[in-house]
C-alpha cells in the first residue's frame, strides 16, 4: 500500500518535471524573446542587448532553465519583464480568487451531481430520471459563455437581483470575493454537474443490476441502507477519476467564465499574459495549471485506493 502511494508520488513528480521542461522549451521555441516582446518596435541594437543582459537572456537555454527550476524549487516564480514585478505578486491574489471560484463550484457541484446521478439511476426511465437527464444533456451541450450570458441577462439585466459583471480588485478581501461569485459559480456548476451526474448514473445503474445488490434485497435490507452502504460506494469507484478530470477541466472552464464575468482570476490573467506576450507569466501560469492537473489526478488515485479494497492490497505490482 505505502509502496503504491510512493510510486504514484514519484510518477507525479516525474511528470511535473517533464511538464516544466516542455513548458520551458515551448516558450523558447516561440519566435523572439521576452525582451523583443517587451521593447516591441524599439527592440534593436544596444537597447535590446542591455535588456537581454539585464534579464540574463544572453545566457544559454540550459543555464536559464536550471536557474528557473532552482527558483521554482525555492518558491520563486521569477520576474515579469513587462509588468516589472515579481510574478508571485501578480499571480498570488488572482490564483486565490480562481481557487475560491473553482472550490465553490466543486463543493457545490460534486455532491449535487452524485445525488442527482443516484436519484436518476434509482428511478431509471421514470419521469424524475427523464427530467434530470434531459436537463443535464442540455447543460452539457451549451457552452459556458452562452450559459453565462444567459444567466447575466436573466438575473442581472431582467430581474436585477445580482451584479452582471464582477467589479473588484484582484486583492479584494474574501468576503467581497464571495459576494461576487454567485453567477460565475452557477455557470461552472451547471456543466460540471451534468458531466459527473451522467457518469454516476451509468455506473449506479450497473451496480444496481449487480448480484450483491440483489443479494442485499434478498437479505431484507431496507432500500436506503442498500443504496447508501452497498450500491453507492461501489458506483462511485469508477466515477472518482472522472470527477478529478472534471475539476481539472474546471480550470479551463474558469478561463472562459472569468472573461465573461470580468472576474480577476488566473484565467483572465493568462488571456492577458498571452496577448501582452509576457513570456515569464505565461510560463508560470502554464506550470501552475499543469501542477493542478497532476495534483488532482494524484488525489483521485489516492481516493480510489482508499475506497477500493481490491486495489489497496496489490503490493505495488504491475
Amino acid at each position: 500500500m505505502l509502496q503504491l502511494i510512493a510510486r504514484r508520488f514519484v510518477f507525479a513528480l516525474v511528470t511535473l518535471w517533464a511538464v516544466s521542461v516542455v513548458v520551458f522549451t515551448a516558450v523558447e521555441l516561440l519566435p523572439g524573446d521576452a525582451c523583443q516582446a517587451f521593447l516591441g518596435q524599439m527592440a534593436q541594437g544596444q537597447r535590446l542587448d542591455n535588456c537581454r543582459s539585464r534579464y540574463q537572456l544572453d545566457q544559454p537555454a540550459q543555464v536559464r532553465y536550471l536557474k528557473w527550476a532552482k527558483g521554482l524549487l525555492a518558491g520563486d516564480l521569477g520576474q515579469s519583464i513587462k509588468r516589472d514585478k515579481p510574478l508571485k505578486e501578480i499571480i498570488g491574489p488572482r490564483f486565490r480568487n480562481t481557487v475560491i471560484l473553482g472550490l465553490s463550484a466543486a463543493l457545490l457541484g460534486i455532491p449535487m451531481a452524485i445525488l442527482l446521478g443516484a436519484i436518476a439511476a434509482l428511478y431509471r426511465d421514470q419521469r424524475v430520471d427523464i427530467w434530470i437527464s434531459g436537463i443535464a444533456i442540455f447543460c452539457m451541450t451549451v457552452p459556458e459563455f452562452i450559459t453565462g450570458t444567459l444567466l447575466i441577462s436573466f438575473f442581472a439585466v431582467w430581474l436585477g437581483w445580482l451584479p452582471g459583471i464582477v467589479i473588484m480588485r484582484a486583492d479584494a478581501p474574501l468576503l467581497e470575493v464571495l459576494s461576487n461569485i454567485v453567477l460565475p459559480v452557477i455557470t461552472l456548476t451547471l456543466v460540471m454537474v451534468a458531466h459527473i451526474m451522467r457518469m454516476v448514473r451509468t455506473s449506479m445503474i450497473n451496480v444496481l443490476a449487480s448480484e450483491f445488490v440483489l443479494m442485499g434485497n434478498l437479505k431484507g435490507l431496507p432500500r436506503w441502507q442498500l443504496v447508501l452502504r452497498h450500491a453507492l460506494p461501489n458506483a462511485l469507484l469508477p466515477a472518482i477519476n472522472l470527477i478529478a478530470l472534471n475539476i481539472a477541466w474546471l480550470m479551463g472552464g474558469v478561463l472562459v467564465v472569468e472573461v465573461v464575468f470580468n472576474y480577476p482570476g488566473i484565467g483572465r490573467l493568462s488571456v492577458n499574459a498571452i496577448s501582452d506576450r509576457d513570456f515569464a507569466l505565461v510560463q508560470a501560469i502554464a506550470l501552475l495549471m499543469a501542477s493542478i492537473y497532476i495534483g488532482l489526478n494524484l488525489i483521485a488515485d489516492l481516493i480510489s485506493l482508499l475506497l477500493n479494497p481490491r486495489l489497496r492490497n496489490q503490493q505495488g505490482a504491475g
Binding site: 448480484e211 450483491f212 443479494m215 442485499g216 434478498l218 437479505k219 452497498h230 461501489n234 475506497l307
Partner: peptide, 16 residues
C-alpha cells in the same frame, strides 16, 4: 427464509 446465491464472489459487496 434466506438465499444462498450462485456466485458468492459477486454476491458479497466488494467494498465491505
Amino acid at each position: 427464509m434466506a438465499l444462498i446465491p450462485q456466485n458468492a464472489g459477486q454476491a458479497l459487496t466488494p467494498t465491505m
